[in-house]
Design a protein around this nucleic acid. Structure first.
Lengths: 111, 111
DNA sequence: GTATTTGTTCTAAATTTTAAAACTAATATC
DNA sequence: GATATTAGTTTTAAAATTTAGAACAAATAC
């Protein structure tokens, strides 16, 4: 449909929200809380890569830290294109949710 | 992710919005305008069926009308479950979009 | 009858999602 | 130093979803 999928939108928004801390595992933690459900690592890393390949995200690799297991992280940030895509999906979303009639339903034959 | 996909959400919202006029082709027309892009018939009918099978929608078949080509239409309406799923996705959406920091970005190493 | 219109069904290809195993590289502990 | 543990990314294959469009059906129009 040429509009961001839900997962793509949520990942882009995570990157936005997390600012300098937007790397794979962190995004996964953040999103798992947001949707109140544990996400697999693949559920985050796979779309992250795709979003980068398509130019919605760019990335840079950090230096390792001196914490236990503190490997280099791949940080992401939104590109212009990423911001634009988010704006677009937000507009569609707002339009879709606006002007909904009451659910009272005189038009419903089965009630 | 156990949350409605974008297409599923848009279709459920179409059904809500269109009230008594929510049948396949009409939904397609409505959504095509909403997303400003022609949708194929399959892009609507396939998820419509799935949403019904999963209990988000129910349907009834109209009588044919006396217009040219006026065949019986399959009308849809939201079930309780459908309304609940929409509420859930709206909550996630609102949370995802709230509290976003400025995009000014002091944290961005490449600027 | 034949054409045209409105409508739904079907289906196969493409894309996206998902889970989980594999891999990598750091510190900790013995 | 060997082994364990932790934090992190990559890979992969199955499942699910999306999509286009052909096929089919049933109505009116000519």
């Amino acid at each position: 449909m040429n509009i961001l999928s839900r997962m793509e939108e949520l990942i882009l928004l995570s990157v936005w929200k997390l600012q300098g801390e937007a790397y794979g595992l962190q995004i996964r933690t953040y999103l798992s809380e947001l949707v109140e459900q544990e996400l697999s690592v693949g559920a985050v890393y796979v779309p992250l890569k795709r979003l980068k390949k398509r130019g919605y995200l760019s990335s840079w690799d950090s230096d390792p830290t001196d914490e236990r297991g503190g490997r280099t992280k791949r940080f992401y940030k939104l590109t212009e294109k990423g911001v634009t895509a988010l704006q677009q999906v937000k507009t569609v979303q707002e339009n879709a949710w606006s002007g909904l009639p009451d659910l009272g339903l005189g038009w419903n034959p089965s009630i």
